[in-house]
Write a protein that binds this DNA or RNA. Structure first.
Lengths: 383, 383
DNA sequence: TTGTAGGCGTTATCAA
DNA sequence: TTGATAACGCCTACAA
């Protein structure tokens, strides 16, 4: 019956109650800021708490209340700057609401994702935030038993306890490809992301649509799909550029685009003169490479905030929460597509704007007003 | 007595037991892979579990056992690629050991850090992993009540339930500065990190030591300390280069170094001809800028793994865990310090090596053998 | 090998 | 306003 004797017994709420000469409930009332506690009692209880070094067990409270104040955030890889930004957005919002985050890297592995979903459900997280997840809705539903509120980026899953955030992937991709077409490119290849990611499929569709709209035949030989990493982009580009030598590359994301740039370097191809490249996301790295990467911007941090706020609303369950929300994107024309030769001044401007992405420097709520609301749009460096 | 009637009652272990016609204990045995359960019973129980859609409550189990299988990972900012890498290392190890991670961004804010430590203690995490934390050991001790095993990077806290991981900051900094001295630079400025970070102080010391060893006077006017971000580096460099025009900049980390590069660009200064720059960490971005950043490499991912493994050992408490561990660093000489003009081939090599940092592409345990063991050393691109 | 009887530390429901 | 008492869902002795 005794616990491990090595460990001294924990101070419990009961002990505090005894010490303060009140009932357990009263201590609980003090801890939870219940209004109907006399100041005198409150002070006495607080004194006992301090004296005994009492720590409330959120565990026990959660077991009793059924709420853990805990959110599972599931992403492919925290090492990808895109998700770093997203998670930061989540954390800023959730921390202020009193939630703690379980961080889960799936590493693009469906099995690990399922396992994590399982664990999170067993840990009784109050909600789930899913980014870049595999889209199989059955999994989702099964894993969480239809009981946990979810906000998921680019998931086909449709259910009344789920909100889906749709990045405007196809529109963004179409803008990028149209831009390349406008520059006179005909042979535009696509380095696609994994087909298990809905976002990758959306961007692939946008690519096809833009070609079709321009009367250019879709050539499957110009499309390679692989892991959305620098290395993935590197190898895909190597293969593509070795074979067919397309004039332009539209990449699933910036990481792949940068990998493609490395491949071009290896092959002795000049960017943008020999090969034009466009990425997607606008991560910080995109502004650091030479030439600066033309890309389709997704407001990552804001998306994390938005997702978290939607989830919070769902948890409050007093308001009607939309089942589907669209996040706009914008084409950022820079150096790698060949639309313009960037002046040194323009480059400086871009880099200086990049400094604004240092979240640590920002006052806590400085970006409060910058919520996503605008439509997909096109921005050039001067604007 | 009834719960919220809206929510259907959860299936409990008892229900499963009843359904399977066995005792709760038996179900528990099955769940926890107790060896002495007949296959037949195990199968029956498992069938009932599936039939009822039962989910074990880790919460309740934790309350009972006193272990949550949960680790708190506290970092300044997940948006900083350095910590993204570190956290990934932690996750890879901890996931395999069955632990879930609470991710906590302190945003360089001591109050938030304290609050998080408090929450984590109340959540009864089994252990704590602290990176870039504020060094006040009293806080630590108080916050966790001396009961939670800790592994902390660069913390002065010394106690028997804490292991400290010391990055070899002063040695690394000294190597960097000596390198600049060897190149003939006399006026070497230091863009230092916040003095609340022990690592920043260590690097500052190394800077001083190297100067002293070379008989160069330490000039406080050549040192600015600020937030370890691109923006911080940018503003510090602007100030430093405006005033005194030092010949070289040694920066607390790569982010600041990159900020400094942006500042140089703005001032029309060429790197490395007008200003030589050396960073610290070797994040991916360091390989992407032009000229490529000379830096002092810290094996971030490996450090995350190491820290986690040490913590796991502490939790196993069967082995003697060291109270202090040193992590070596190495000087990576590239383009921004002016030691050499990088050939295009050399740049390609560096970039191709960068691709290896795509963790998603790696097989789960491919990097198992690459644990940190070597001494601080100096590497040039050709080696 | 399996069953029984608490108790882990809270909060909720009453009544006082 | 506060006090007793019963859950919350699981695990661990111990007995069978």
């Amino acid at each position: 019956m005794q616990r491990n004797p090595r460990r001294k017994k924990r101070v419990t709420l009961r002990d505090v109650a005894k010490h303060a000469g009140v009932s357990p409930k009263t201590v609980s009332n003090v801890l939870n800021d219940w209004p109907y506690v006399s100041d005198e009692t409150r002070r006495r209880v607080q004194a006992s708490i301090d004296a005994l070094g009492y720590r409330q067990s959120i565990l026990a409270a959660s077991l009793r209340t059924g709420r853990t104040k805990t959110i599972g955030v599931v992403i492919p890889d925290i090492t990808n700057p895109f998700f770093g930004q997203v998670v930061r957005g989540c954390e800023d919002v959730l921390y202020n609401a009193g939630y703690s985050i379980f961080l889960c890297n799936t590493n693009e592995d469906a099995a690990k994702e399922r396992t994590y979903l399982d664990i999170l459900a067993n840990r009784r997280v109050d909600g789930l935030l899913l980014f870049g997840a595999h889209p199989s809705s059955e999994e989702l539903t099964a894993a969480v038993h239809g009981e946990i509120p979810i906000v998921a980026e680019d998931s086909p899953a449709e259910s009344d306890n789920t909100t889906v955030i749709d990045i405007d992937n196809s529109a963004g991709a179409a803008m990028a490809v149209r831009h390349l077409l406008d520059l006179g490119h005909k042979r535009i290849a696509h380095l696609g992301g994994p087909s298990e990611r809905a976002a990758a499929n959306g961007r692939h569709e946008g690519y096809q649509q833009a070609l079709e709209a321009a009367g250019v035949d879709y050539d499957p030989a110009l499309v390679i799909r692989c892991k959305p990493t620098m290395r993935g982009g590197y190898h895909a580009a190597l293969q593509l550029l070795g074979d067919e030598q397309p004039a332009a590359l539209f990449c699933y994301n910036d990481l792949m685009a940068i990998g493609a740039m490395v491949a071009c370097r290896r092959l002795g191809l000049e960017i943008p003169d020999d090969v034009a490249i466009v990425g997607f996301d606008d991560i910080a790295m995109a502004s650091l490479v030479t030439p600066i990467l033309t890309t389709v911007r997704v407001q990552q941090y804001e998306m994390g905030r938005l997702a978290s706020e939607l989830l919070l609303k769902r948890l409050g369950d007093d308001e009607e929460v939309p089942g589907r929300v669209k996040v706009p994107v914008e084409l950022i024309v820079r150096g790698s597509c060949g639309a313009k030769r960037m002046s040194s001044r323009q480059v400086s401007l871009i880099l200086e704007r990049l400094l604004d992405s240092d979240l640590v420097d920002l006052a806590p709520c400085e970006s409060d007003e910058s919520h996503i609301a605008s439509q997909a749009s096109c921005v050039t460096p001067d604007s």
